[in-house]
Write a protein that binds this DNA or RNA. Sequence first.
RNA 1: GGCCCCUUCGUCUAAUGGUUAGGACACCAGGUUUUCAUCCUGUAAACAGGAGUUCGAUUCUCCUAGGGGCUACCA
Length: 497
Amino acid sequence: MSTNVRVRFAPSPTGFLHIGSLRAVLFDYLIAKTLNGQLILRIEDTDRKRQVAGAVEGLINILAWAGLKFDEGPQAGGPFGPYIQSERMEIYKEQAEIILKKGAAYRCFCAAERLTEMREQQQAEKKPPFYDRLCRELSQAEIKKKIKDGQPFVIRQKMPLTGEVMVHDELRGSIKFMAASLEDQILIKSDGMPTYQFASVVDDHLMQISHVLRGEEWLSSFPKNFLLYQSFGWQPPKFIHLPLTLNKDGGKLSKRQGDVAVEDYKNKGYLPEALLNFCVLQGWHPSASVKAPKEKTDEILSLAEMIEYFDYKDMGISPAIFDAEKLDYFNGYYIRQMSLEKLAELGRPFMRENLKLTRDRRKQSDDYIKKAIGLEQERLKKLSDLGELTEFFFNDELNYEPELLIWKNLEAKQVKENLRIIYGLLEKIADRDWLKENIEKDMIDYLKTNELKAGDYLWPMRAALTGRAASPGPFEVAQVLGKEESLKRIKMAVKKL
RNA sequence: GGCCCCUUCGUCUAAUGGUUAGGACACCAGGUUUUCAUCCUGUAAACAGGAGUUCGAUUCUCCUAGGGGCUACCA
């Protein structure tokens, strides 16, 4: 038997990648990497009703954006393909015949209406909905006749009527189920497509998957899956059931509560590093014995560091609530760490609206945009904050109330006078000396020699330059704005008072 | 309703049969500072409840409560 570690991520292409799925692939990836195994991408598209055009490409793209590479899959190829379930119909058909022959499954001709009716009645009687196994004991002759008559059928798994089924989860240990509570679940639908319950077991075996990581929502079908492996005579892989990610109210994280699609986060300017760092901490933490270097907090983890410290045995089993504020912290942290070149490149798309606010060529230059972004870098939680935060750099017609210029309890005319003085000082600085260091030096020297209070001058100056209550400092803003624009804005402020 | 899973600060979590129960985010306070942000320092904040085992339980066992999942010809 092969001891090769093979882990698969098996999403169904619903049109977007759920943030919870991103966490799942990350753990798949980490298990594969830390155990020297392969990571396989398999597309589970056996539900015809839920087909979404372009979803597979979208999935592959966003996974690539996240930086997680697959060793095998629809794109990478590999010896166990095809990796898209809808292209594996022959395999399922063949395996269904086998399981039928083994007597571990049977054809069920019950009409959907009968089943619905039965279920409703059972619920009305407060009994658990449960297939009554009407077709389980059909004779060969009856089956033949129904097939000949063209009656549609599904194939159901035959569950033991009595006894217990013991399954083992790598994190939770052994879990016991009463066989009598297990429904004869459908393996093959009447359209010939396999259900997840059949396809995943068949594929995991055929693709030689060693570790199955899946959501906790699959725990209740675990014994049925285990039984299917037994019926086939296959050795089941190791199973790890990942606790669910919950929303703030404690429910399953769903679209209604806000963004759940990784694409949404990407569009808002969240970085893959931040998303991954956030996700990995939901259900895992570096064990105490492998503490990260102390100059960093041990929760800031690059993908490489995760691989270094990860051990799936350290994974937790209690559900975690999605804390968007912590995600923001990570994102802000990674933005601050980023080089200005990279940030300017990634931030550029978020500047589009601002560029429309100016007719000044210089303000539309890459260099100017980059400098504006640079001054707001430490204030960003996400890239999409850039538009609002840098707006004043571009806007030719700053619009603000005159009161904004007034520092504490100064008189308006005093502020006006101070701004005139500032104007005079700035005017004297030569164009080629227009650097924040020089501007600052001239201003501070003046204030010191005349024993003036910094706030009385610097607040009005900054407010005049930015039109905002909160912004980067006046000297650096002045430098980026340039001498001409800075003087223009101060003159305008004087006029306002 | 039935079956199954889970339970440490508000949130993510660490550790331990005997500790001042640790860290991170958020919060609050202070420092740096013209503002905001960054950065630094500090405060406050948790073992769900009950019973048992034990010299001793947050830690082990059981019960209760609470939360969650499943209960489809969806995954």
